[in-house]
């Protein structure tokens, strides 16, 4: 960390950095569209773009396994689930003028204030910190598998129980009882 002076500054970005920033901008734009668009289904589609962009960012950060998991779970299942939800709740197709609640301006103020504060703090703290992406890949499937099943196996198994509970819960919640019919 005290090697900051030895590393290039912001004005001389490396190729990885350029790619990261460009993809980051795209991700951010897609996220913004997700939360602002008036067409509900479009929001879900823009979410796909944002989540996919993040997967690319993970790749750029050499976290290869996380990236594929991101694509598989988020883009593959979560977004599909969300789309199902939209359909099942009979969300209107097309522009709906009341997609945003009356709380919008307050939300904007809070979000901007939070963003300003956090950006200031983060930039102030990590202005000179440098990530060394060289060396052996840190997030390859092999490495990830090794640490998961060597060090993290107990939480991993516990998590499977949690998933099972969530599965059962979701089924119970969405099941129609006989009386309703």
């Amino acid at each position: 960390m005290n090697l900051a002076a030895a590393h290039p500054g912001f004005l001389s970005p490396t190729g990885v950095e350029v790619a990261f920033v460009l993809v980051g901008l795209a991700t951010l734009g897609a996220a913004l569209l997700t939360v602002t668009t008036r067409q509900l289904v479009h929001a879900a589609l823009w979410l796909v773009v944002a989540l996919g962009g993040l997967a690319v960012e993970y790749l750029l950060l050499t976290a290869e396994f996380i990236a594929w998991v991101q694509v598989l779970i988020y883009v593959g299942s979560v977004v599909v689930l969300l789309l199902f939800g939209l359909m099942l709740t009979k969300a209107p197709i097309g522009r709906s003028p009341d997609a945003d609640s009356g709380n919008r301006w307050v939300a904007l103020a809070v979000a901007v204030a939070a963003a300003g504060t956090l950006v200031w703090v983060v930039v102030d703290a990590f202005r000179t910190t440098w990530i060394d992406l060289g060396g052996p890949a840190q997030g390859s499937t092999e490495v990830t598998g090794a640490i998961l099943f060597r060090h993290w196996v107990l939480p991993f198994e516990a998590l499977s129980v949690l998933l099972l509970a969530a599965l059962v819960g979701a089924i119970v919640l969405s099941k129609r009882t006989g009386r309703e019919r």
Partner: peptide, 22 residues
């Protein structure tokens, strides 16, 4: 009764506190 209002106030307050703390 609107959860979003509550959350807004909660998070706004958190931001103010965080700024003060910083």
């Amino acid at each position: 009764g609107n959860v979003q209002t509550y959350l807004s106030v909660l998070l706004g307050g958190s931001v103010v506190l965080a700024v003060l703390a910083v």
